[in-house]
């Protein structure tokens, strides 16, 4: 029987590609996370994340750095997106481009620029922790601004007018109408900032002068020592966090992809 061409068959090459290079690697990782170096089943890899002092401190510093970075990005990014999208600026779209252009410049190079700048103003050898957080904000701020801008610009003006017609003042309208309406953007922004700031060890290496070990660095260290089992266990944990997060926020939403500039 000759298979008749249908347009749906066009996704076969990519389906095979995904099976081989996305699904299979995750399954292999799952296997290594639950086995020891001899290949026997074990839960020790996961247990040692919480008993090993290096691993536990990496978990804690990752979470605290990621929370702080995300909060700062939101505090800076929300007003920026709001002003650009809703204050009737003439060149809002062009200004937005200025805010996100750095996103397209090689991020290691931008970090080098920031490091040189820190050295110039003499704060490079001060707090490794805060330098890392500033670096994360510097790097990830566009990922927060962009999805917020997309949701705020799409927001229906009549809702705001209705709220004001019904007697709510500006602050009340903002809290009860604008913020809830922009939640999809807030959630995408948080998704796009929180996970990378727990794991992007390039930033903590360059600006924290390797004094800070976050989860990403820990995985890299295990990778360098060929300790695949521990590296896989921590990666599995991060994967699980990602799935729970996506599930809690009601599935993947396209605004998350917008954060990287799709459709710009």
């Amino acid at each position: 029987m000759k298979l008749r061409f249908a347009r749906k068959h066009l996704c076969i090459p990519y389906a095979l590609f995904l099976a081989l290079f996305v699904i299979a690697p995750i399954l292999i990782m799952l296997y290594y996370a639950f086995t020891d170096s001899e290949g026997g089943f074990t839960l020790m890899n996961f247990a040692s994340i919480f008993s090993d002092i290096t691993a536990l401190s990496a978990v804690l510093s990752s979470v605290s750095i990621a929370l702080l970075t995300t909060a700062i990005c939101l505090i800076i990014g929300y007003p920026v997106a709001y002003i650009l999208a809703r204050s009737g600026l003439k060149h809002g779209k062009t200004l937005l481009l200025l805010f996100i252009t750095p996103m397209w410049i090689n991020f290691v190079m931008r970090l080098n620029a920031l490091k040189e700048f820190f050295a110039l103003i003499n704060i490079l050898d001060k707090s490794a922790y805060f330098n890392t957080v500033i670096g994360m904000v510097y790097d990830f701020l566009p990922f927060m601004i962009l999805p917020l801008y997309t949701t705020l610009i799409k927001m229906d003006n009549s809702l705001i007018e209705a709220s004001q017609d019904l007697g709510a003042n500006k602050i009340k309208t903002f809290v009860n109408v604008v913020i809830p309406q922009s939640m999809p953007g807030v959630i995408s922004g948080i998704t796009m900032v929180f996970m990378p700031s727990m794991t992007n060890y390039v930033i903590s290496d360059i600006l924290g002068r390797s004094h800070i070990t976050i989860l990403g660095k820990l995985i890299e260290n295990y990778f360098m020592q060929n300790n695949w089992n521990m590296g896989a266990a921590i990666s599995m944990m991060l994967l699980a966090v990602m799935f729970v997060f996506t599930w809690l926020t009601g599935g993947f939403n396209d605004d998350a992809a917008n954060a990287k500039g799709v459709g710009l």
């Binding site: 749906k8 996704c11 990519y14 389906a15 995904l18 290079f21 996305v22 699904i23 299979a24 690697p25 995750i26 292999i28 990782m29 290594y32 998704t191 996970m195 990378p196 727990m198 794991t199 992007n200 060890y201 989860l215 990403g216 995985i219 890299e220 990778f223 695949w228 590296g231 896989a232 990666s235 991060l238 994967l239 990602m242 996506t246 993947f252 998350a256 992809a257 990287k260």
Partner: peptide, 30 residues
Amino acid sequence: AATVMNTVNNIPIINAEIVTALSLALLFAF
């Protein structure tokens, strides 16, 4: 089928890059 494809397609986008990197390194190493 479309939902399955889209879901798997989104994994590399929302996954931490280090997880994608390590899983690929495992595939190639073993």
